[in-house]
């Protein structure tokens, strides 16, 4: 493995707004799991983050997931770690980091879900408002 040290950038004091866009169902492909890994790593960099669930991505945080018959790992409890990171960021005055967990209203309603069906506490946001928020981001990563 090559030496990482010569590839470091000076990011001292950089604070950006990241948005992570989850738009696919949790187990049909690997995107949901790997974007979750991305979100968790980003916490160490203390950047602002909006974790967004749209389209079938809403199913990623639905309560009561059972993957036993699929032979896949049920990783939905890990979303609670995001909620904990958000909580820590909200409570700790020394951490200058705002995390938001957002579900697009239209996607949620089209799937017959409401916020009580979800494993984490979310902000429910209309597509139009989410679009405006997306436009304000510095970095938008998806999967």
């Amino acid at each position: 493995m090559a030496d990482d040290s010569r590839r470091e950038f000076d990011t001292e004091g950089v604070k950006k707004r990241f948005m992570f866009v989850n738009r696919r169902a949790p187990y049909g492909s690997i995107y949901a799991l790997e974007i979750l890994e991305m979100v968790l790593i980003s916490a160490a960099f203390e950047q602002h983050a909006a974790i967004v669930f749209i389209d079938d991505g809403v199913f990623q945080i639905k309560k009561g997931q059972d993957t036993e018959a699929l032979g896949m790992k049920n990783f939905s409890p890990t979303y609670r770690v995001i909620e904990m990171e958000k909580h820590d960021a909200d409570e700790d005055e020394d951490i200058d980091m705002v995390w938001r967990i957002i579900v697009e209203r239209e996607s949620m309603e089209a799937r017959g879900l409401d916020a009580d069906d979800l494993i984490v506490g979310v902000e429910v946001m209309a597509a139009q408002d989410l679009s405006a928020l997306m436009a304000e981001q510095d970095v938008v990563l998806g999967g």
Partner: peptide, 21 residues
């Protein structure tokens, strides 16, 4: 190529003016 961690993505996004996916 080299193999490294996801932090390299976040760090590059912090350092760049634009991140294209």
């Amino acid at each position: 190529f080299r193999i490294s961690g996801l932090g390299q993505l976040i760090e590059a996004s912090m350092a760049a003016d634009r991140t294209l996916v």
